[in-house]
Amino acid sequence: MVDKDVSWDRRNQFHLLEVVAQWEGRVTTEHLQRAFDINSRTTSGGIFKDYGEVAPGNLVHSASVRGYVPSETFEPCFSHGRLDEYLSLMTRHGTLNPSFAGLKDVPAPTESVSIPHRAVLPEVLRKAVQATQTRSRLEVVYRSLSSPQGEERIIAPHTLVYSGQRWHVRAWCEKHRAFRDFVLTRMASGAELLGDALEDADPVLDANWQNQVLVRLGPNPGLTPEQQHLVALDYGMDDDQELKVPVRCALTHYLLQSLNVVWGSCQLSPIEQPLVVVNPEDLEPYVFNG
């Protein structure tokens, strides 16, 4: 069991140790020095020592590679063992950590596509964050396709959500008396907190948020068997050629969007849409305009 008292800074450092060690086979004090702007080899050595105390036997020092390597019994404690964690570290230097670009131990250049960030007004985000933290009502002028000029709404946000393309809040809407998604970029300036949220706004009552649905995806049957097999490999499907993804019901639509799975009558060619939903009847209640 990992010590819950480990500080946030140490957890971040331990996360890097595990991810680099797992996916490169070696992690060194120089990784820590460059990634966290540590000037002292003694300090970075102390981080390895601290990690060894909370995750004994996970990393072992190897004189031959002049660094630490994963042991045969290595088990991630501060990471999840997923490739995307490594890729995230390798691309993070472009936005969060410029020093990471200088790592000599990076095996190959990496790059990622940067999706333009839609402009969220800082004052709007601050009010939304405050409302979620204090469980407050929030009065906003909200613009939508049906009301592009905007109309006043009173909402009670409980969670900020990044859908992969934009930020929104999951909130109780007093006008519609239902939990809905409100895109932050569509909120005008001047949002105001109005006091405690109503009892109906309790997040526990947001059934589509609290409950999950299993999204089952498979290769598009319009592809050749060889192409379907390749798609199955691309997405790490099981022997049944299915990718099974549990997701909050309220986030089902966004998951399909991120995987380029088109819902409804507008269909792409099999090459353009290599994945299809295997269980559409289970998802239909949670897909917009489904």
Score class of each variant (00 low, 15 high):
F100D: 06
H158M: 10
F48D: 04
F100N: 10
M90R: 07
N97H: 09
S62W: 09
L138M: 12
T132V: 13
H117S: 15
S79M: 06
V141I: 14
Q130L: 15
A131V: 11
V54H: 04
Y162R: 03
E85D: 02
F74K: 05
E75R: 07
V124C: 02
F74I: 07
V129I: 15
T91P: 00
S99N: 11
Q149A: 12
T95G: 00
P122E: 13
R82G: 01
L89H: 11
R126D: 08
H61F: 10
S99E: 11
V124P: 00
S147T: 10
F48Q: 03
R118I: 09
V65D: 01
T134K: 08
R135Q: 14
E123K: 09
Y68C: 06
D50N: 13
E139C: 10
A108G: 01
G57M: 14
H80R: 05
E151Q: 06
G164H: 05
Q149G: 00
A171Y: 02
V65Q: 03
I115V: 08
F48M: 09
V65P: 00
N97P: 00
L96Q: 08
V106E: 09
R92N: 00
P70I: 14
V140T: 02
E123F: 07
I155C: 11
S71E: 15
A55T: 14
C77Y: 01
